[in-house]
Computed example of a mutant assay.
Amino acid sequence: MDDFYKRYCELCANKGMSASGVASAIGLSNAAANGWKKGKLPNDTTLAKLSAYFGVTVEYLKGEETKKDPAGTGEVGSAKKALINLIVDLDEEQCRKLRSIIEEAVNLL
């Protein structure tokens, strides 16, 4: 079992949900969870949705970091989680515009 699927199952259990139940909750078929069990990895959009659903980073889901967040609190802060949820639903053009706005704001700081 790969790092992603281990963490996915752990996070599902923490929510009291089955692997297929969580997939369904974010709008995917039960087959998606079966594919992950067999070693397939979700695409970037799905990883972002799962990250927002569980309140963890994509890197944590993929097994690239051991902590769920940089502060070590176990969750992404509520403001960040809300922002992630909004971003997941944007199309590519909206993402480009938002990135430009954020980059300008960061440069002003």
Rank of each mutant, 00 (worst) to 15 (best):
D3I: 10
D3N: 13
D3V: 12
F4P: 01
Y5R: 04
K6N: 05
R7M: 03
R7N: 07
R7V: 08
C9Y: 07
E10G: 06
L11I: 02
N14A: 14
S18D: 08
A19G: 12
A19I: 04
S20R: 15
G21F: 05
G21M: 03
G21L: 03
G21A: 02
V22Y: 07
V22R: 01
V22I: 07
V22D: 01
S24Y: 10
I26K: 00
L28Y: 07
L28N: 06
S29K: 13
S29N: 08
N30E: 12
N30A: 14
N30M: 10
A31F: 11
A32L: 04
A32Y: 09
A33Y: 04
A33L: 01
A33T: 04
N34G: 14
N34D: 09
G35N: 15
W36M: 05
K37F: 05
K37S: 07
K37E: 09
K38Q: 15
K40E: 13
K40W: 14
L41I: 10
L41G: 06
P42I: 06
P42C: 03
P42R: 02
N43G: 15
D44C: 09
T45S: 11
T46S: 01
L47H: 00
A48F: 08
K49C: 00
K49G: 00
L50H: 01
S51Q: 01
S51A: 08
A52W: 00
A52V: 03
A52H: 03
G55A: 05
V56R: 05
E59A: 15
E59K: 05
Y60R: 02
Y60P: 07
Y60H: 01
L61G: 04
E64G: 12
E65V: 15
E65C: 08
T66G: 10
K67P: 07
D69E: 11
D69W: 01
D69G: 06
D69H: 03
P70L: 12
A71W: 12
A71G: 07
A71R: 13
G72T: 06
G74S: 06
E75F: 15
V76S: 00
V76D: 00
G77Y: 11
G77F: 10
S78E: 14
K80V: 12
K80F: 13
K81N: 08
K81Y: 03
K81E: 08
A82Y: 08
L83S: 08
I84T: 10
L86N: 08
V88H: 00
L90P: 03
D91H: 00
D91C: 02
D91Q: 06
E92W: 05
E93D: 13
Q94Y: 04
R96Q: 13
K97N: 11
K97L: 15
K97S: 10
R99N: 11
S100V: 10
S100T: 13
I101T: 13
I101Q: 11
E103T: 12
E103G: 01
E104L: 15
V106Y: 12
N107C: 09
L108D: 14
L108E: 13
L108G: 09
L109S: 11
L109E: 15
